Computed example of a mutant assay.
Amino acid sequence: MTEATERFFESLPARAPKVLVSPVSGTLQIHLTQDTRTVHWLAHLRPGAIEVSRNRGPADAIWYTSEELFDRLVTGRAQAISSVLRNESSFSGDVVLFLLFRRFFPDPPGARDPREAARAQLGRLR
């Protein structure tokens, strides 16, 4: 597993209060595969908090992806929903947990909030 992925999971509890603002709760099991080995992460999500461990356990949803793709996700070089739509990863269970968890991933390098771009454009027109 890459250092970026390790740092990503370590950062989740501190970032959760800003990311997990909805009333959704549940457990997401993440399976990261590399060749014939699989690394497991278990994330218990609740409003304003997340607990992450390297355990396996009962989960409301399971996400299967490669370590290489996950590394691209945590560095903003790939998008979670696009990876599922392209069959690069798969998901089963409560889709709301997947949609909530993906909010932890960074935006692509150079991405801007469209509202900021519109405000900048409006400022130039005045």
Results as ranks from 00 to 15, higher is better:
His44Trp: 10
Leu28Thr: 02
Gly110Arg: 08
Gly26Met: 10
Phe70Thr: 00
Arg77Ser: 09
Arg15Gly: 05
Ala61Asn: 00
Arg86His: 11
Arg56Asp: 10
Ala120Gln: 10
Gly93Arg: 04
Asp35Glu: 15
Phe8Val: 00
Thr2His: 02
Ile62Cys: 02
Val24Pro: 01
Ser53Pro: 05
Val84Gly: 01
Asn55Tyr: 04
Arg126Met: 08
Leu73Glu: 03
Asp35Thr: 15
Thr27Pro: 12
Leu125Met: 13
Leu125Gly: 04
Ala118Val: 12
Pro47Asp: 05
Arg37Trp: 04
Arg72Pro: 00
Glu6Gln: 13
Leu99Ala: 10
Gln79Tyr: 08
Ala59Asp: 05
Gly26Val: 02
Arg119Asn: 07
Met1Thr: 03
Gln34Ile: 03
Gly48Glu: 03
Leu73Met: 10
Leu73Cys: 11
Trp41Arg: 05
Pro106Asp: 13
Arg124Lys: 14
Ser66Cys: 07
Glu6Ser: 06
Arg77Glu: 11
Phe101Val: 00
Thr27Val: 15
Pro109Leu: 08
Val84Leu: 14
Thr5Pro: 01
Phe9Leu: 06
His40Trp: 07
Val84Phe: 05
His40Phe: 09
Val24Arg: 14
Glu6Pro: 01
Asp35His: 09
Ser25Tyr: 09
Glu6Trp: 04
Ile81Glu: 14
Arg126Phe: 01
Thr36Val: 14
Phe98Pro: 00
Asp71Lys: 06
Val39Arg: 05
Trp63Thr: 03
Arg115Asn: 12
Ala117Asn: 07
Val19Ile: 15
Trp63Ser: 05
Leu73Trp: 01
Gly93Phe: 04
Thr33Glu: 13
Lys18Thr: 13
Leu69Lys: 11
Gly48Trp: 02
Phe104Lys: 05
Ser11Phe: 07
Gly57Met: 12
Pro109Gln: 09
Ala14Tyr: 04
Pro47Thr: 03
Thr36Ser: 12
Lys18Ser: 14
Pro58Thr: 12
Arg77His: 14
Gln34Met: 09
Leu125Gln: 11
Tyr64Lys: 11
Arg119Ser: 12
Val19Tyr: 03
Arg54Phe: 03
Phe101Pro: 00
Tyr64Thr: 08
Pro108Ser: 15
Arg77Pro: 01
Thr27Ala: 12
Ser53Thr: 15
Ile30Thr: 00
Ala78Asp: 02
Ile50Tyr: 01
Val19Glu: 05
Ala14Pro: 09
Leu69Thr: 07
Thr38Pro: 04
Val96Leu: 15
Arg119Cys: 06
His31Asn: 13
Leu45His: 01
Glu3Gln: 14
Pro13Gln: 12
Arg56Leu: 08
Phe98Trp: 03
Arg56Gln: 12
Val96Ile: 14
Pro114Gln: 11
Arg119Phe: 13
His40Leu: 10
Trp41Ala: 01
Leu99Asp: 04
